[in-house]
Amino acid sequence: SSQSQGISSSSTSTMPNSSQSSHSSSGTLSSLETVSTQELYSIPEDQEPEDQEPEEPTPAPWARLWALQDGFANLECVNDNYWFGRDKSCEYCFDEPLLKRTDKYRTYSKKHFRIFREVGPKNSYIAYIEDHSGNGTFVNTELVGKGKRRPLNNNSEIALSLSRNKVFVFFDLTVDDQSVYPKALRDEYIMSKTLGSGACGEVKLAFERKTCKKVAIKIISKRKFAIGSAREADPALNVETEIEILKKLNHPCIIKIKNFFDAEDYYIVLELMEGGELFDKVVGNKRLKEATCKLYFYQMLLAVQYLHENGIIHRDLKPENVLLSSQEEDCLIKITDFGHSKILGETSLMRTLCGTPTYLAPEVLVSVGTAGYNRAVDCWSLGVILFICLSGYPPFSEHRTQVSLKDQITSGKYNFIPEVWAEVSEKALDLVKKLLVVDPKARFTTEEALRHPWLQDEDMKRKFQDLLSEENESTALPQVLAQPSTSRKRPREGEAEGAETTKRPAVCAAVL
C-alpha cells in the first residue's frame, strides 16, 4: 500500500463515540455579560531565545476518518491537505487489492476528492471536503458537486459515486458533537469551532446549510445566566432586550441578528466578523496607526449616533465590543453586545450600574441610586476607546495605585505619557480631550465629534464608502454560481449515467 503517514491498516477498528472529540476555545468574540476587562498594560515583551531549542513535538491529529468498508483504511489527519483517489500521487490511494476487485472500484476517479483545513476566524481551523469526481462525492447523502466544497462537521458520513455507498465517517477532533444542539438549529446550521467564551456562554462559528455562508452563533446558558443575574427581577429580559434591539436596528456599522432560537439555552445567530475584536488588534499591534484609528472611530461614531437617534444607549462600549470585518488594516467595524443597552424612556434617566469599570463615565460612578444619566455615557466610553487606539494603553487603570480607579475617572485625570502622545496629531488629542470631559453637559456629542476637524478627511470617508460598496456587492452575490457537472467518465454501479447527480441539489457548496 502507498498510504501516507497516519493511515492504519485495519478497517475493522472499533469506532469511538463522539464524546472523545476535544474542545477548543479562544478569547471572547462577544459576550452578553460584562466580565473583568482584559488588561492592556500587560503586553508581554519578546522573550530571549533559549540556548537549546526544544524538540519539535509530534503533531496531534486534528481529524480521524473511520473506514466503513473492507479495502479502505482508517486515517489520522495530521497534515493540512489529503487527496483521495486511484492515482498513485494521492496521499490516500485507493490501491488495496481487496478494493480493486470490487465492482465499485471502476466508478472512483483518479482524484476523487480531497479533505483539507484552512485558517478561519480567531486563527481556528475549518475542515472542508472538495469534490473532484465525475460520479460524485456525497456528505450525509447530499451531493457536494464537482469543483465545489463544503465544510465537514463531526460525524459526517462520506459516500463515493452513490449516496448509499458510504466509505468513511469523519471525526473532527477539535469540535463538539452536533447532537448536543437543538434540532431546529441543526436543521438550518452546521455548528463548528468555538470563537470565544464568557461567564454565561460562548460564541460558535457555524455555516448556513442552504448557502454555506459563515455566521456566529452566540449561545447563552439559561442556567448560568439565571445564577449570574439572580438580582434582576427577570434575567430573561436581558436576552430578550438584546434580541428586540438587534432586530430593529439596520446600520452597516451595527451587528445584524439573523436568527434566534429559544431552547434549553438561547441561541442568537449573528453575522460573522472575520477580523475578531478591536481589543485583540490593539494588543497585537501595541497601538494602531492614526489613519486606521480615524477610519475605525468614524464608523463607531456613525453607529452610536444611529443608536442615540433611535433612543438607544449602549452602556457597555469597549474594544471587546467592536468587531472587525476582516484581518486587513482597512476594514469595516461593527458594534455588538447589546445586553446592557437601554431604550430611552421619557425621563432619559437610568440608575442601574452596569458596564465595565474602566470605560464607565464619571456620572455613572457618582450617581448610583441618587440620580440618572443619559446618552453622554456612550460618548465618554468612545473617548476611552479612542485614547486606547491612539496610545496603546488605557487612560484609567486600577494599577495606578496612588489613585483609585473611581477617583481617576470622576476627576477626569487620565494617565498622559508625553513621549507616547508625541507621535499623535494635535487634532486627534483634542478630540480625545473633548470626549473625556467629566461634566456630561459639556462633553462632545456624537454629532459634535463628527464635525471635529480631525474627522474632516475626505480620503478616509471615501475609503469607508468603498468598503461599504464591497460589502454590499459580496452579500448580494449568490453563493453557488454554477451547477454541478453531469458529465460521466465512468458508469455508476447499477444505474444510468447522471441518474442521481442531477436530482440532488449541491447543498452548502461554494464554487472555488
Rank of each mutant, 00 (worst) to 15 (best):
A376M: 06
F297M: 14
E277F: 00
R492S: 11
Y359A: 01
K406I: 07
M273N: 04
K318R: 02
T446F: 13
K281Y: 13
V322F: 03
I333P: 07
G392W: 02
T410I: 10
A371S: 11
K489G: 14
K427Y: 00
T336D: 03
L270P: 01
Q305V: 05
S411V: 06
V377G: 03
C331N: 07
C389F: 14
E346S: 08
L450K: 10
N259L: 15
T475A: 13
I257Q: 05
A499D: 13
T446H: 08
E277R: 03
I268L: 13
E274W: 11
K286N: 14
F416Y: 14
L481Q: 12
N310K: 08
L512H: 13
D466G: 15
E448R: 03
L317I: 10
D262V: 10
T336P: 00
L455K: 02
N374T: 07
L353S: 06
A509E: 10
F260Q: 11
P453T: 04
V322M: 09
V420D: 03
K503S: 08
Q479H: 08
L317P: 01
N250D: 08
M273W: 04
I268Q: 10
K413N: 05
S404P: 03
N259A: 14
A449G: 11
L382M: 08
I343C: 03
K342W: 03
L429C: 15
E426A: 03
A499S: 14
K247I: 14
S325N: 01
N310R: 12
C253S: 09
Y298W: 08
Y306R: 07
A449P: 01
L436I: 13
A303T: 13
L405E: 03
Q305C: 03
I257K: 04
E363V: 03
Y266F: 09
L323D: 01
L249T: 02
A371R: 02
R462V: 00
E320I: 00
E271L: 09
I343F: 04
K256M: 08
F396L: 01
L246E: 14
F396I: 13
V507Q: 15
K258E: 11
L431I: 06
L450E: 13
E495K: 09
L270F: 15
R287P: 10
P478T: 01
V322D: 02
L272V: 08
E447L: 10
F279T: 06
D439L: 00
E271K: 12
M460V: 11
K247Y: 12
I243V: 07
T292F: 00
A371D: 11
A482L: 15
Y414C: 14
D378L: 00
S326G: 09
Y306Q: 13
E290M: 13
I268V: 13
T358H: 03
A263G: 13
V366Q: 12
S367D: 09
Y359I: 05
K342A: 00
E495Y: 06
C293F: 11
K248H: 09
A510D: 06
E290F: 04
T501A: 12
D330P: 11
P505Y: 08
V480S: 06
V432I: 06
L317V: 10
G355V: 04
E447T: 12
E328Q: 11
V438L: 04
P357Q: 12
L249S: 03
L295D: 06
F416S: 04
K318Q: 07
K258H: 10
A496Q: 11
K461N: 11
T356H: 00
I254G: 06
L272S: 14
L249A: 09
T446D: 05
S474E: 11
L344P: 14
V511F: 12
G311I: 02
D330K: 03
L295T: 04
A263F: 09
S404K: 14
Y373D: 04
T445P: 15
V432L: 15
A476C: 13
E497R: 15
C354M: 01
E309K: 09
T352Q: 00
